[in-house]
Simulated assay, not measured.
Amino acid sequence: MRISFKTELKLNNRERTQLAKHAGVARHAWNWGLDLCQKILNYNRENPDDKLRFPSAIDLHKFLVKWVKAENPWYYEVSKTSPQYALRHLSSAFSDFFRKKMANGRRVGFPRFKKKGQHDSFTLQGTIKIKHRSIQLPKLGILKTYERLPQGLAPKTAVVSRTADRWFVAFSYEIEPNPTVKMLTAVGVDLGIKTLATLSTGETFPNPQPYRKSQARLARLQKAASRKVKGSKNRHKANMKVAKQHARTANIRKDTLNKLTTHLAKSHSQVVIEDLNVSGLMANHCLAKSIADLGMYEFRRQLTYKCELYGSELITVNRFFPSSKTCSGCGHIQDMSLKERVFNCQQCNASIDRDLNAAINLRNQALILA
């Protein structure tokens, strides 16, 4: 199977400048290509009898070399693959939009223009050598890292991205699945708001709620940034503090989900989860913020590849299965409001925590669906 490895780069000022130049060229190529595609679409809309062929990634690159590079010599200061991959990604974005592809439960929208300092990234292709604590990239040379890198790899491409003031490099490689010895068989996992996850074994994982706990500090930083003069260095510093706080919030969420999904995939041979309608849950304005803070899509994404990596089976139960309304003892189904946290069965008089009851019902589905 193919997995990705991402790590932070240890850079000096010269190297940071070079990375910023690569990201700037990739952003310029993307925005130029998007502007050209928009003009072609508008022309075809106004002239249905004389339509122009929509350009592919190869066409865009030919136009870029002919029209843009000749007028902007700073394109030659960076690797040629940086703008090439930007145009490839733009072409893929248009393909997903035209095919009405779904991502994260939502339809992919029309490509947008990129802004400096927001989601800066670029892709490099060529001779990439991985050493003990450094990586050699085309045009950039050897860049140090803070941690050891996996050895014996020769990736063809690498993605360099920036989050706040930190630069990261990511590459993918093939790895053989490594099944682990499982202590337990099937386990049901019920995601919640107050408790991140409740397992059918009775084990619970607390929800760190990183965004809610950082709201007060984030509000102060954003208010301070809005008071600074636009375009000033102080405003840039204040915006960087806001970006760092957002990055810290995201890192706490990712770390929590990584530990949870690794524990589930390594310790159980079957992991049963519910196919939740995240988009529908987000429509509830009272719970949208808390649901978004859980990172449900990231949880399922990590659990999917980790179950394959560690030799576990991931079972997904239909979203219409009444896991919270069914008694795990006798199977009686009854209505329950969201505020009721204890399931009191009206038939067998059993009393059990609502989330634990749902997790047990999900675990029992593993025997039915097997």
Rank of each mutant, 00 (worst) to 15 (best):
A186D: 10
R300V: 01
I135S: 08
P48H: 06
P210F: 12
A170M: 13
F299T: 01
P73C: 01
A216I: 09
D190I: 04
A170H: 04
N361T: 01
Q118M: 02
F168T: 06
V181L: 14
R99C: 11
A170I: 00
R148A: 11
H61Y: 14
P138G: 07
L264E: 08
S328T: 10
R133N: 12
L199T: 10
G117I: 02
R99G: 01
H28Q: 11
P179K: 05
L90I: 08
L149S: 11
R27D: 10
K306S: 03
L221Q: 15
M240Y: 05
S95T: 12
A186C: 05
Q38F: 00
Q302T: 00
A57K: 15
R212C: 08
K230L: 04
E8A: 15
W167K: 00
Q84F: 07
N239M: 14
G24E: 10
K62S: 09
V317N: 05
K139M: 09
T17Q: 14
R106A: 13
A86Y: 01
I40V: 15
I128R: 09
V278H: 01
D50V: 07
K10N: 14
P48G: 06
W74S: 03
N42T: 13
H22V: 10
I175R: 14
I58T: 14
A370V: 04
G202K: 09
S134W: 12
I368V: 06
T145F: 03
Q302P: 03
Y297C: 00
L218V: 10
N234R: 05
K244V: 02
C286R: 15
R88D: 09
T17D: 15
Y211S: 07
I175Y: 04
H61R: 09
C327R: 04
A238T: 05
N349S: 15
T204Y: 02
A292D: 14
Q334P: 01
S91I: 04
R88G: 03
G33C: 04
T7G: 02
D96P: 04
T249F: 00
T326D: 02
